[in-house]
Design a protein around this nucleic acid. Sequence first.
DNA 1: AAGTGTTGTCTGTGGCGTGC
DNA 2: GCACGCCACAGACAACACTT
Length: 271
Amino acid sequence: MSRQWKMIDLDTGEVKGDFYPDLQIVRSKKQDEAFKRKLQRQQEGRQHEFTFSDMENMKEVVSMLDEKTCGYLLYLQCFVNYENVLVKGQDKTPMAKKDIQETLGLGKSAFAEFFKKVTEANVVLQNEDGIFSINSRYHFKGATQNERVVKSFTSKVKELYGKVNAKDLGFVYLLLPYVHYETNILCSNPFERNVEKIEPLSQLELSEIVGSDDRTTYRKIKKLQFDQMFVLAEVRCGKEKHYKLNPFVFFRKDGYPDASLRADFLVKRKK
DNA sequence: AAGTGTTGTCTGTGGCGTGC
DNA sequence: GCACGCCACAGACAACACTT
């Protein structure tokens, strides 16, 4: 039996409740605030964790795997460590095959199909010791000199995975090789440094890239949102229209996008 | 234990149509 | 010509049964 104390308001003599000194502690407001700040810092640190995707090589993946498989892959590559090994949990232990299935939240048959496809395409590799890793030709974590890469903020991709289906995530995956360095605009020449020379992709061109009709693409752009933000923003300049990918999820430059950019992607509330 | 096949349910896709 | 609502159908997935 643990000790039990009573809390009494000294002004009124009223009994306010029970206190168990063996089970509970009293923390000052100041301590509590410091603790909350610490927790927030930790979470922000994790929020800005990212992986790289090689924009040129990943086109090979697109040609080998179908849209939904690419979607699962985009989510799965969030779980690599700096050796590109798929890891789980706080202690970052390597994932077993079953862990991969659970991470993706798939049933037996759907997972078997996915696993067969990605291993045959050599996108997910099984090492001799039974450890699974992602082929670093396509996705990797850690420093790089390569500029033809796009960063994925893992916490945002994970959040997105919970909100949309794999095919939708695959849709985004297919667009990643077309993200412009400075502006996040989807264009046919993403490595062009001169902003004047960007050739933005039209809705029709986007449809061709993802291999569905313009109607479906249109609906996806409108639908893809999470946490009160759109994944794609439509930018109108008179009659011209182009599309921008959300820099809080995918970003090419160093560091983290400026918070003012967020406004472009906010979900507009009616009135 | 892990892979394969079948079936039922649900959701997304794309055709058609309407209003602006 | 564009935006989008409706709807039938196809495809994706889970659950289950069955095989190796």
